[in-house]
Amino acid sequence: MDFYQLIQRRKSVRVYGKKPVDIERLNDLMDEAEEIKGIISQIDTQFVLIENGWEQEEKLQGKIGYDGNVVRAPHYIVLLCAPKEGYLQNAGYMMEQMVLKTIEYELSTCWLTINHGGHEVKDLLGIQEAGIPVAMIALGYGQEGDVEAGKKEDNDKLSLQDFVYDQRWGRAPWLEEIKMRGLATVFSHIGNAPSFRNRQPWKLIIDGDEIILTVGHKTQEDGYLLIDAGIMMIYMERSFNEEGLMAKWSLYMEALDGIYEAYGIPEYQKIIGTLHI
């Protein structure tokens, strides 16, 4: 299944049936998880499967999920990361790849926020492996009649003019040029990227063969913004790859005052990196 097919089928499921996933199917999924690469290779990571999900509700209440409301599921997958520079972007980049793999296995899933840091969640779940829980998803078979709470309708998506700028912040792109460059399909699919509470906090600046990714939201915590940035990074990279363009990221790990000034980027935005296409 190609990337565009996967993201068209992607949805967030928050109500699960009691039936567990067959252990062989789970093992195959976790074997494939070992092939998922991060955007920053120096950060140690590991996916951990929590098989007995139904037994975790009381422990996890208030610790995961929007406003601490646990999504009950037969299984969970937790991504552990070493807390190094860039680990949140890296976690978003990796866990969204795991979400897309679950679609290939015809399983249901949804992202779960980890509230107040991951150390307590790690202890409650009895995880022994090294690293901090940074990202988590529910896993199982969706219950019939579940509301697809995380699936954006077309009228909820940002229009291209709302999140793509031409050479400078706030300057609308010339749509005909985007079409002539064969990028219209790419940006249409990038707009499907999921985000925390569907806030879609990203803005892109096109400058020739480079696209600068920024994220920002006045009421959203930095941690969620950076995880959202990682999700957008995999969507951008895979979308361009799908069109035969070998895209490569350069990440920024420190404030770049010159770029803020050159492109007129507001101070509340975080510059994440540049995609070279």
Rank of each mutant, 00 (worst) to 15 (best):
T113Q: 10
D154E: 12
E85Y: 00
E144A: 12
L124Y: 13
I43F: 06
G62W: 02
T45P: 11
Y165C: 06
I178W: 00
Y141S: 05
N69L: 14
N90A: 03
Q46H: 11
I39Y: 04
H75K: 02
D154N: 15
L139R: 01
Q42R: 12
Y66A: 13
V121D: 01
N90L: 00
I127Q: 04
D146M: 08
N115Y: 14
W111A: 05
E96D: 05
L124G: 09
C81K: 10
I178K: 04
E148F: 12
T113A: 14
G65L: 08
L125S: 10
M94C: 01
K179L: 12
M180I: 15
W169C: 13
V99H: 12
E177T: 15
K157L: 12
W111T: 11
C81M: 11
L125V: 11
M98H: 12
H119P: 09
L175N: 11
M180F: 11
G62S: 05
W174Y: 14
E58N: 11
P74V: 09
I178E: 07
L158A: 13
A130V: 10
R168N: 14
P74R: 09
V121S: 09
K179G: 03
G86T: 00
V164S: 01
D156G: 01
P83D: 10
P83K: 13
P133L: 05
A130C: 14
K101E: 02
P83W: 06
G131C: 07
K179T: 15
E85R: 10
I64D: 08
D123Q: 12
S108Y: 01
K59G: 02
E120F: 04
L112S: 13
L160W: 00
Q61T: 07
Q89Y: 00
L49I: 08
P133C: 02
A135F: 02
L79Q: 04
Q61S: 06
P133M: 04
T109D: 05
I132Y: 07
N90Q: 04
E153Q: 09
M95P: 08
Q56E: 15
E148M: 06
V48N: 06
S41C: 03
L112N: 15
G142K: 04
I43P: 14
S108D: 15
K151C: 07
E106W: 01
D154F: 08
K122T: 10
E144F: 02
H116V: 05
I132D: 13
Y93Q: 06
